Simulated scan of single mutants.
Amino acid sequence: MSLDTVVEDIREEAHARAEELREEGESRAEEIISEAEDDADEILEEAEGNAEREIEQLREQRLSSAKLEAKQKRLEARRDVLSDVREHVEAELANLEGETREELTRALVETSSAEFENADTVRVYGRADDEELIESILEDYDGYEYADEYDCLGGVVVESDQSRVRVNNTFDSVLEDVWEDNLQEISNRLFEQ
Rank of each mutant, 00 (worst) to 15 (best):
V7C: 02
D172I: 06
K67R: 15
N169M: 14
S160K: 09
G25Y: 07
L68T: 13
L108C: 05
E117F: 06
L68F: 05
D161C: 00
A47K: 08
D4Q: 13
V165G: 01
A40L: 12
S187E: 15
D84C: 01
L133Q: 08
S187A: 08
E26M: 07
A119F: 03
A14E: 08
L82I: 04
R101F: 06
A114G: 12
E103D: 13
L153Q: 10
N118D: 15
V89G: 01
E46L: 13
E99Q: 14
Q193E: 13
V6G: 00
R59S: 11
E69Q: 08
G155E: 02
G49P: 00
R17S: 04
D181I: 00
K67I: 04
S173I: 02
E19Q: 09
R123N: 11
A40Q: 06
L3F: 10
Y150F: 14
N169S: 14
E54T: 07
D140N: 14
L75D: 13
Y146L: 12
I32K: 03
L183R: 15
D181T: 07
A119E: 15
T121P: 00
H15V: 05
S187K: 14
L68D: 11
I55K: 13
S173Q: 11
I43Q: 01
L190G: 11
N182Y: 07
E76T: 08
N182D: 10
K73V: 05
L21W: 01
F116V: 06
S113I: 03
L108V: 02
G98T: 10
A107Y: 05
C152N: 06
E145G: 09
Q162F: 02
E30W: 02
D181S: 12
D161L: 09
V156M: 08
R106A: 08
E48W: 04
E103T: 10
A70V: 01
N169Q: 14
E135H: 04
M1L: 10
F171K: 03
V174L: 13
D84E: 14
E31F: 04
R166Q: 12
D142P: 09
E35D: 11
E90F: 02
V167Q: 09
R78H: 09
V122H: 09
K71V: 05
E52K: 12
R22D: 03
Q184W: 03
D130S: 03
D80A: 13
N168I: 14
E139Q: 14
E60T: 10
L133Y: 09
